[in-house]
Amino acid sequence: ANLGFNVTAIDNSAALIDLAKTAAQQGMNHQNAIEWHCATFQDIVQKDWQRQFTAIWACASLLHVAYYELPKLIDGLLHMITDDGVFYASFKYGNSERVKDGRFFCDMNEEHWEALKQKITAEFKDKTWLTTDRRADRNEEWFNIMIKR
């Protein structure tokens, strides 16, 4: 928003949105440039937002969605970006689904991504790469995906 972009910020936690709003108001020059929504992933894809966004940033968020639900969700999100839009997502690297500390995780690797891509109906080009978590208390790899329509 400080760079002049209109931002639609979405989270399923109203408390987290309130924290983000407070932080944004303290460091923002363009307070009206952020539109806040409390919504689930399913709520998002049901909105009338076809071709509305130039980019979607889903950093470490889709990893809380079951693998079998991802193709339909990603299809819905891809329909929301413009024809020249981009979509970024990241997952913990692996090939399992698990619950850790009461939170669901769907890991992703090259094989899982290739299989998932076959179930997405929207046409796109993608690039994937691995990164290492930079937090001091973590020793994890992340599977990153950049999609261009």
Rank of each mutant, 00 (worst) to 15 (best):
residue 13 S to W: 11
residue 13 S to H: 10
residue 15 A to W: 01
residue 15 A to E: 14
residue 15 A to R: 06
residue 16 L to H: 08
residue 16 L to M: 12
residue 17 I to P: 02
residue 17 I to C: 08
residue 17 I to D: 07
residue 18 D to R: 09
residue 18 D to K: 11
residue 18 D to V: 01
residue 18 D to P: 00
residue 19 L to D: 14
residue 19 L to Q: 14
residue 20 A to W: 03
residue 21 K to N: 01
residue 21 K to S: 02
residue 23 A to D: 09
residue 23 A to W: 05
residue 24 A to H: 13
residue 24 A to Q: 11
residue 24 A to M: 04
residue 24 A to Y: 15
residue 27 G to L: 05
residue 27 G to W: 07
residue 28 M to Y: 04
residue 28 M to S: 15
residue 29 N to G: 12
residue 29 N to Q: 11
residue 29 N to C: 02
residue 30 H to G: 05
residue 30 H to P: 03
residue 30 H to C: 09
residue 31 Q to C: 05
residue 31 Q to W: 08
residue 31 Q to E: 13
residue 31 Q to H: 11
residue 32 N to P: 00
residue 32 N to F: 04
residue 32 N to C: 02
residue 32 N to T: 15
residue 32 N to D: 15
residue 34 I to E: 07
residue 34 I to S: 04
residue 34 I to Y: 08
residue 35 E to S: 14
residue 35 E to Q: 14
residue 36 W to R: 05
residue 36 W to S: 06
residue 36 W to C: 05
residue 37 H to A: 08
residue 37 H to W: 11
residue 37 H to F: 15
residue 38 C to G: 00
residue 38 C to R: 04
residue 38 C to N: 10
residue 39 A to S: 11
residue 39 A to T: 06
residue 39 A to H: 10
residue 40 T to E: 08
residue 41 F to A: 11
residue 41 F to Q: 02
residue 42 Q to V: 06
residue 42 Q to N: 12
residue 43 D to T: 03
residue 43 D to M: 04
residue 44 I to H: 02
residue 45 V to C: 01
residue 45 V to G: 01
residue 45 V to Q: 00
residue 45 V to R: 01
residue 47 K to E: 11
residue 47 K to G: 04
residue 48 D to H: 09
residue 49 W to F: 14
residue 50 Q to P: 00
residue 51 R to E: 15
residue 52 Q to R: 15
residue 53 F to T: 13
residue 53 F to A: 10
residue 53 F to I: 13
residue 54 T to G: 13
residue 55 A to Q: 10
residue 55 A to V: 06
residue 58 A to Q: 05
residue 58 A to F: 06
residue 59 C to G: 10
residue 60 A to Y: 07
residue 61 S to M: 06
residue 61 S to W: 03
residue 61 S to T: 14
residue 62 L to V: 12
residue 62 L to M: 15
residue 63 L to I: 14
residue 63 L to S: 06
residue 64 H to T: 02
residue 64 H to A: 02
residue 65 V to N: 06
residue 66 A to Y: 02
residue 66 A to L: 03
residue 67 Y to E: 14
residue 67 Y to G: 02
residue 69 E to K: 07
residue 69 E to Y: 04
residue 70 L to R: 04
residue 70 L to T: 07
residue 71 P to C: 10
residue 72 K to D: 14
residue 72 K to R: 10
residue 73 L to Y: 07
residue 73 L to D: 05
residue 73 L to N: 05
residue 74 I to K: 10
residue 74 I to Y: 01
residue 75 D to E: 11
residue 75 D to S: 09
residue 75 D to L: 00
residue 76 G to R: 04
residue 76 G to D: 02
residue 77 L to T: 00
residue 77 L to G: 04
residue 77 L to E: 03
residue 78 L to A: 06
residue 78 L to F: 08
residue 78 L to M: 14
residue 79 H to E: 13
residue 79 H to W: 04
residue 82 T to C: 07
residue 82 T to L: 01
residue 82 T to Q: 12
residue 82 T to E: 07
residue 83 D to L: 11
residue 83 D to N: 12
residue 83 D to M: 08
residue 83 D to I: 09
residue 84 D to M: 02
residue 84 D to T: 13
residue 84 D to F: 01
residue 85 G to Q: 07
residue 86 V to G: 02
residue 86 V to C: 09
residue 87 F to K: 00
residue 87 F to G: 02
residue 87 F to V: 04
residue 88 Y to A: 01
residue 88 Y to E: 01
residue 89 A to Y: 00
residue 89 A to D: 02
